[in-house]
């Protein structure tokens, strides 16, 4: 058999040394190669890949969407938090002049920022306009509504407000004092509860992402069994064998997140008009927020890590079982 003299080893027993620099270069090259190969492998079987990605996207979009919604509600309630009001329902016996006098007295107090009187007639007019019971009011002989004074406290802290409310309630002219903050407090408690629920849901769905990617990688490991065995036989390290699978997992995570991002943005888009309509009805200039740059980045990075983690768990578990025999 012809032996190429130039390329023939002088002595087969001498193994060549590879210097550290070229080994490092080769290590980087292998990373790039594996990243590319695992990318193109994903699309070698487009349908199963797409189904997996769709599952991942839904699992990621749900908490992402809910968190964005919550963020909006929080922003909304924060906006309201800044203007707590106390409504003072005056005793029905008081006439308009007395109510007006009382509101002027209130103006002199140093713990109120603003005082706003809604006279009995004004109240009836608003009631007629805003409710459907206007014609019922017509049946009544006289105006059943009391005059109302809404005041804006100077001290807006949650401790001071109930104290002020109690003080105002104690005044003889006041029939009942209602702190508008109460429903806001309830709302914020509700938001907190929902937040916790979404967090738990997010954790569960994150786990689902890890498991879905893990299972996909497990199948991929099974189908590449021969390759793994040969690599191990010729001296491939665990890291070397693991690498393509870790990249596959990371790609799944990243692509799943990208798809989830589209789903979330699309859902928000469909909600945009009804929300704007609702805001208009409340005379608010509320503008709903999307995921934003940081939200999008968090979504992508979290998902990338989850995909990588799923692959890492699957590979760690199965690669030990595949040994040449």
């Amino acid at each position: 058999m012809a032996v190429d003299e130039k390329n023939a080893p002088r002595r087969g027993a001498q193994q060549d040394r590879i210097d550290r620099r070229s080994r490092n270069r080769n290590w980087r090259r292998h990373h790039v190669l594996m990243a590319r190969q695992s990318w193109s492998r994903l699309f070698a079987t487009p349908l199963p890949t797409l189904i997996t990605l769709a599952v991942l996207a839904i699992a990621l979009a749900l908490p992402g969407f809910l968190l964005t919604g919550l963020k909006n509600v929080q922003q909304l309630s924060e906006g309201w938090d800044h203007e707590p009001r106390i409504s003072l329902y005056l005793s029905p016996a008081m006439d308009d002049a007395a109510a007006d006098r009382f509101s002027r007295e209130l103006l002199l107090r140093d713990d109120l920022a603003a005082v706003d009187l809604i006279s009995r007639a004004q109240g009836l007019l608003e009631f007629r306009e805003l409710s459907r019971f206007g014609n019922i009011v017509d049946l009544l002989d006289e105006n059943p509504l009391p005059a109302v004074i809404t005041v804006q406290p100077l001290d807006r802290s949650l401790v001071a407000l109930p104290v002020l409310k109690a003080k105002l309630q104690a005044l003889v002219e006041v029939d009942e004092a209602v702190l508008d903050l109460e429903w806001l407090q309830r709302l914020s408690a509700f938001v907190q509860l929902t937040q916790r629920a979404v967090l738990v849901l997010g954790l569960l769905l994150g786990l689902a992402v890890v498991l879905v990617v893990g299972n996909t990688i497990r199948l991929s490991i099974e189908s590449r069994r021969d390759e793994i065995i040969v690599a191990k036989l010729v001296g491939g390290t665990d890291a070397w064998v693991r690498r393509p699978f870790l990249y596959t997992g990371a790609w799944y995570g990243l692509l799943g997140a990208a798809l989830a991002w589209c789903l979330i943005q699309f859902s928000l888009l469909t909600l945009k008009e009804p929300v704007a309509e609702l805001a208009r009805l409340y005379l608010s200039d509320f503008e709903p927020m999307g995921l934003g740059l940081s939200g999008s980045l968090i979504l992508l990075l979290t998902s990338l890590m989850l995909g990588w983690l799923g692959a890492w768990l699957a590979v760690g578990h199965h690669l030990r079982q595949i040994e040449p025999s």
């Binding site: 590879i18 070229s22 080994r23 270069r25 080769n26 290590w27 090259r29 292998h30 690599a231 010729v234």
Partner: peptide, 11 residues
């Protein structure tokens, strides 16, 4: 080429 790739030879 596989063993060489694994050992870290230049392409």
């Amino acid at each position: 080429a596989l063993p060489l790739q694994i050992c870290g030879y230049e392409p």
